[in-house]
Nucleic acid binder design. Structure first.
Length: 569
RNA sequence: CGGGCCGUGGCGCAGCUUGGUAGCGCGCCUGACUGGGGGUCAGGAGGUCGCGAGUUCGAAUCUCGCCGGCCCGACCA
């Protein structure tokens, strides 16, 4: 490709509305443009990278036996009703001219399962199907450029097996393939245990890339490798050594005390880790109490997972008062009716001499023995892990990292196959729903995550495998005949060797070309200028590490070709 | 959904308080010089000031409504 014929609209200034490094760079370097909130166009450079990411994914999936499909984006609403996902708030909906309701696909479990109804016999299993297709999700808050958008291409694959062992194998195969895909794309991922959320199913693993621009927190143990999304992560608790306390709880006035911190500082109060934090939540319209140690915070996703509820929200002031007879700040679970569901975090298990609200405004109870005084319905890990707490596996200190999710693999089980009727006959001639897994990688998000982790103050630094061009030949003085001819010759030689090469033949000052080449992040630059040609040499500049070396004109194409081939993975 | 900020040539911004010929830098075009890190000089093109209504002799500027965008929080298959 010739720069003079290419559309590479680079900008000198960062776009004013961008925050994340990848967002600034993708726009500034001419890879992407925003059309509307969370809706982006990929420009030629951006699309070249996306295609290389896709090629990498495709190659690894075909290695594990996957077959490529292409399914529609527009789905009749009924199919989403059948699986119970018809009411998803993030869906874009439309109607055709006859008034039929359609949904723009948020994902394709339903449609692939619909096709899987044509599977008749266990002999046809296992099957592994995938596609690259645009997904539409009306996110409440798109942000950070390509990291969180409303329309994006996802690679999604789906496995169909007769039994759990088959699913386990497909899941493991995907795990391994994802590892290789991300590695080849230059992404260092942490595979973490995750909550399956509304997808359903038994087990799921997310592939997370640590970066400042991320929005998901991961707890990671540097010693044993334990890693989990904060929605799922837990920690080992130190043994509590409480006093036995009083024979029964003692009520005491606490004027003006509204918060855990207030009570910790109150004369006759208790430190936060000796308090019981009482939250009132509405789980699928049923009020419930959630108990945590005073210094712990709730993870709502854990509450959803533990309770089995599909929706959870904090109760309003009126709901709290009618349930417990007091306002927030003086709430407790002691003496609460057995009809009320009480979920408690294990950090409270067998604790004694604790302090909590008395369900009487501005009064608290001390000497509370959790086992003796509170009717816990369910013990469940509910608290948010904090940095430095002990790893549940090896007790080494946990580290919290901000990450971006680039892939997610799920063991779905039979949720979709049962709902949509994807069944096969087993060896006994008995109908059985197929057991499914689903596996996704956001292509645009992966591109952004690569930029996020591969750039410096001068611009992007592409890993060879996904670079839009592998080499740029920068002709310093295109009007000089020798410069021009040598540049062209090197360009053609590299093209002949199968290298993705761009020649910067623009008649602009050298500084502009150097800046642009670094901004768009091409791994190798060959600088052809009068200075070097005087001695029959050209300069080779490696973007990563900024090393320069001089090579004779007739050797440079071979040498750089060799470098490129070495770095391709 | 709660809170905050912002819409003015392609990009980054000033002008708005106190209404009166729409400005700056970069980029773009033409020419010349230049040519190893966003070079110099000269000339030039380009704007419904987000949209609509109102106030006014007169609105980028004041008022009301709407639309769009960004950030924080909540939420997130």
């Amino acid at each position: 490709m010739r720069w003079t014929q290419a559309f590479i609209p680079t900008l000198r200034d960062d776009p004013a509305d961008a925050e994340a490094a990848s967002h600034k760079l993708l726009v500034r370097a001419g890879y992407a443009r925003q059309l509307s909130s969370g809706i982006y166009s990929l420009l030629p450079l951006g699309f070249r990278v996306a295609r290389k990411v896709e090629a990498t994914i495709r190659a690894e999936l075909e290695k594990i036996g996957a077959q490529e499909f292409q399914l529609p984006c527009m789905h009749p609403s009924e199919i989403w009703e059948k699986s119970g996902r018809g009411a998803i708030a993030e869906s874009f909906r439309l109607q055709d001219r006859h008034g039929a309701d359609l949904i723009l696909g948020l994902t394709h479990e339903e449609i692939f399962t619909w096709l899987a109804r044509e599977l008749r016999s266990y002999k046809e299993l296992p099957q592994l199907w995938f596609q690259f297709q645009t997904k539409f999700r009306d996110e409440e808050r798109p942000k950070s450029g390509l990291l969180r958008v409303r329309e994006f291409v996802m690679k999604d694959s789906y496995s169909f097996d007769l039994n759990e062992e088959g699913l386990d194998l497909q899941f493991q195969n995907h795990f391994d393939a994802y590892r290789r895909i991300f590695e080849r794309c230059g992404l260092d991922t942490i595979a973490v245990e995750a909550s399956s959320g509304a997808m359903g199913g038994s087990e799921s693993v997310e592939f997370m890339v640590p970066t400042e621009a991320g929005e998901d927190w991961v707890a990671n143990c540097g010693m044993c490798g334990y890693a989990a999304n904060i929605e799922k992560a837990t920690s080992a608790l130190p043994e509590a050594t409480d006093e036995a306390g009083a024979a029964s709880p003692e009520q005491f006035p606490t004027p003006g005390v509204r918060t855990i911190a207030d009570l910790a500082g109150f004369e006759g109060g208790a430190p936060a880790d000796r308090q019981i934090k009482t939250l009132v939540y509405v789980l699928d319209e049923e009020p419930a109490l959630v108990l945590l140690r005073g210094d712990h915070d709730l993870v709502e996703q854990k509450l959803l997972d533990a309770s089995g509820a599909t929706a959870a929200r904090p109760a309003g002031d009126d709901e709290i008062r009618s349930l417990l007879g007091a306002g927030a700040g003086s709430l407790g679970a002691v003496g609460v009716s057995a009809d009320v569901r009480i979920l408690a975090d294990p950090a409270l298990e067998s604790r004694t001499d604790m302090t909590t609200g008395a369900n009487l405004d501005e009064h608290h109870l001390r000497g509370v023995d959790v086992g003796r005084d509170i009717n816990i319905t369910q013990w469940a890990d509910l608290r948010e892990v904090k940095s430095g707490e002990a790893c549940p596996a090896c007790e080494h200190a946990l580290e919290l990292k901000k990450t971006v999710e680039v892939g997610h693999i799920f063991k779905l089980g039979t949720k979709y196959s049962e709902a949509l009727g994807a069944e096969v006959l087993d060896e006994n001639g008995k109908k059985r729903p197929v057991i499914m897994g689903s596996y996704g990688i956001g292509v645009g998000r992966a591109v952004a995550a690569i930029v996020e982790t591969h750039h410096d103050e001068n611009g992007m630094i592409w890993p060879m495998n996904v670079a839009p061009f592998e080499v740029v030949v920068t002709v310093v003085k295109p009007k000089d005949v020798e410069c021009h001819e040598v540049g062209e010759r090197i360009y053609e030689t590299l093209q002949g060797a199968g290298i993705d090469v761009l020649i910067d033949d623009r008649d602009v000052s050298p500084g502009v070309k150097f800046k642009d080449a670094e901004l768009i992040g091409i791994p190798y630059r060959i600088t052809v200028g009068p200075k070097g040609l005087k001695d029959g040499k050209v300069e080779v500049f490696r973007r990563r590490g900024a090393q320069k070396r001089e090579l004779p004109v007739d050797r440079v194409a071979d040498a750089v070709t060799e470098n490129v081939l070495e770095e391709r993975r």
